[in-house]
Amino acid sequence: MAGQMLRRWNSFYGAFDPVDAAIEAVDPDQFSRHVFQRARGDLLVWLCNAADDDQAERICGILDDLMAESLETLRMVPSTPGVPISTELDESVRALREHDSERIRLLARGIVSGWEASVEDDVVKVTPAMPMKKL
C-alpha cells in the first residue's frame, strides 16, 4: 500500500512549487519557503521507504496538512493587482480540486472561485471605461 500512497501524491506533489513561488513572490523575506521545501523532500523520501501501510498513511497525512497550509497561505497573502496568475499555478491549484483530501479540495475550489470572481470584477470595472464603437 505504500506504493499506492506514493501514487496518491505523485500527481499532486508538483503543485507545491508554483504555490510556493506565488507565496514567495509577495514578500520573499517574510514567506521564504526553503525550509518547507526541504521538509517535503524528506517526507517524500520517507514515503518511498515506508516500512508499512500505517507509516505511509501518516506521511501522506502530513503531506496533506502541508498542502492545506500552503493553500491557506496562498489564499491569505495579499494579491498584487494587475499581476496575472501563472498558468502553472492556475493548473496546479485547479488539479488540487480533485485531491483525495476534502480539505485540500475545498481550499483549492475556494481559491479558484476567488480568482474567477476577481477576473469578473476586473471585467466589470474595465467594460464601462472602454470606448463604444459607432456602427
Rank of each mutant, 00 (worst) to 15 (best):
E69D: 13
T80E: 15
P81D: 06
S101P: 02
S113F: 04
I59N: 00
M67D: 01
P81M: 05
M67R: 01
A95Q: 10
F31E: 06
R40L: 08
L107M: 15
Q37C: 06
D65C: 07
C48W: 08
L71M: 04
V45W: 07
V93T: 01
V93R: 00
C60W: 02
A25V: 06
A56M: 03
E102N: 10
H99R: 09
V35H: 11
N49P: 01
H34V: 10
S118T: 12
Q30A: 14
E120M: 14
A51M: 10
L89C: 04
S79C: 07
A95V: 02
F31C: 08
E91K: 12
A22M: 05
S70C: 13
V77Q: 02
V35K: 15
T80Q: 15
S79N: 09
E24F: 05
I62S: 09
H99N: 11
V45E: 11
P84I: 04
N49T: 14
E102C: 02
I111T: 00
L44G: 06
T87R: 14
G61V: 08
P84L: 10
C48M: 13
F36S: 12
P28S: 13
E120R: 15
R94L: 11
E102T: 13
G41Y: 06
L74D: 01
R105E: 02
A50P: 04
D20W: 14
F36I: 10
T80P: 00
S70R: 11
L44T: 08
E91H: 10
A68W: 07
D52V: 03
V112T: 10
D100Q: 12
C60Q: 03
A39H: 13
L43W: 07
R40Q: 12
W46Q: 14
H34T: 10
V26S: 08
D90N: 14
H99V: 01
G114W: 04
S92C: 08
E72K: 14
A68F: 11
Q55S: 13
E24G: 05
H99I: 02
M67H: 02
R58V: 07
E91F: 09
Q55A: 14
A117R: 11
G110L: 01
E72G: 03
D53K: 09
A56P: 04
E24W: 06
G114C: 04
A95G: 05
I62Y: 05
R75G: 04
D52F: 03
E57G: 08
C48D: 10
D90V: 01
E98Y: 08
I85R: 12
I23M: 07
S70D: 15
V83S: 09
V77T: 04
R75K: 15
F36N: 13
E91T: 13
R40A: 08
V93E: 00
D53R: 08
L96N: 00
S32I: 06
L47D: 05
V77A: 02
V35Y: 14
G41L: 10
D65E: 15
P28D: 08
V83W: 03
G61K: 06
R38M: 10
S32L: 06
G61L: 06
W115I: 12
L89S: 01
A56N: 04
W115N: 11
A22T: 04
V93W: 00
A51E: 14
